[in-house]
Computed example of a mutant assay.
Amino acid sequence: MTVSAFQLEGKSVLISGAGGGIGAVLVRTFADAGAQITGTDQTLAMLDHLDLEQKLAFDLSDVDVTSAAIRAHIEHFGAPDIVISNAGYTRAERLEDVTDANWQSEMAINLNGVYAMTAPIVDAMARRGSGSLVFISSVNGLAHYGNPAYAAAKAGMIAYAKAIAVERGGSGVRTNVICPGSVRTSAWDHRLVENPHLLDNVLPHYPLGRLVTPQEVANAALFLASPMASGITGTVVPVDGGLTAGNLRFVSDVLGAARPQG
């Protein structure tokens, strides 16, 4: 199936976190499908390398600034046809590492800020009678893989998306969620420099035996946002190399070790 089959010519798309590794690929993928892209990030400088119709800068952790920026954008340009809520942030931690400040920070960026950005758009979409949103959550919102505060925020994002799907579906608004596993972006580079064997511990947990790519996340987002998925709303789609399908390490270590020899 070619990208043109998704028929996004002339559609307006707002992509948050557009300057990041996944965000830049989302921008390119939707632009290739004919969409007109508004990109958002913390600063305009983070968007300099992207070819965008419009650029917005705001910090998701400041809900008042975020909401005001989005409302002003809607007033001038109308609600976008599609929103890809991609921006997010986390730190590697376990429960014993979580502080009150860390918890508040994760919630502010990954949940409260996401709500502040999308709620005005959802209202405008519902008044118009059409719209599609795709939230980039995480496998951490489906099961525990560490990062407790981030996981709680991403689980909250899934619940929020389902609320929109159920309560605004009758107004023509569709909402779906993508839950990536580990994505091979440049964020891994410094970690692999520090520990070249890091993936030796990571990859055995993934049935596909590799990390997913930003393009694979973007492909799923393009499908869910497009008319090709017109009957799909309220779904959660893991793009995770099979991580959430089952425990490959358990199968290998426990059942493999128990297999009779000879």
Rank of each mutant, 00 (worst) to 15 (best):
M1C: 08
V3C: 03
V3P: 03
A5N: 08
F6V: 05
E9V: 00
L14T: 05
L14F: 07
I15A: 02
G21M: 06
I22W: 00
A24K: 15
L26D: 00
L26F: 04
A31D: 09
A35I: 01
T38A: 09
L44Y: 04
L47W: 03
D48Q: 10
D51K: 13
E53F: 11
K55M: 02
L56Q: 14
L60C: 09
S61G: 13
D62E: 04
V65Y: 00
A68G: 08
A69H: 01
A69S: 14
R71Q: 15
G78I: 09
G78P: 11
D81I: 00
N86D: 03
N86L: 05
Y89M: 13
T90Y: 12
E93K: 15
E93P: 14
L95H: 11
A108E: 03
N110P: 09
G113S: 08
V114W: 01
Y115M: 14
Y115P: 04
A116L: 11
M117D: 01
T118K: 07
T118I: 06
A119C: 05
A119D: 07
I121K: 13
A124G: 07
M125E: 03
M125H: 04
R127P: 01
G131D: 02
G131K: 13
S132E: 00
L133M: 07
L133F: 03
F135V: 08
I136K: 10
L142R: 12
L142H: 06
A151H: 05
A159R: 06
Y160N: 07
K162H: 12
A163C: 14
A163G: 15
I164G: 03
V166F: 12
V173T: 12
N176I: 06
I178N: 05
I178D: 00
C179L: 09
S186R: 13
S186C: 01
W188P: 04
D189N: 10
L192T: 09
L192Y: 01
V193N: 06
N195Y: 03
L198S: 02
L199P: 08
V202N: 00
L203M: 04
Y206Q: 07
Y206R: 07
P207S: 11
V212M: 03
Q215Y: 01
A221K: 10
A225H: 03
A229L: 08
G231H: 12
I232A: 07
V237G: 02
V239N: 08
V239L: 12
T244V: 15
G246T: 13
R249S: 13
A258S: 14
A258N: 13
R259A: 11
G262K: 15
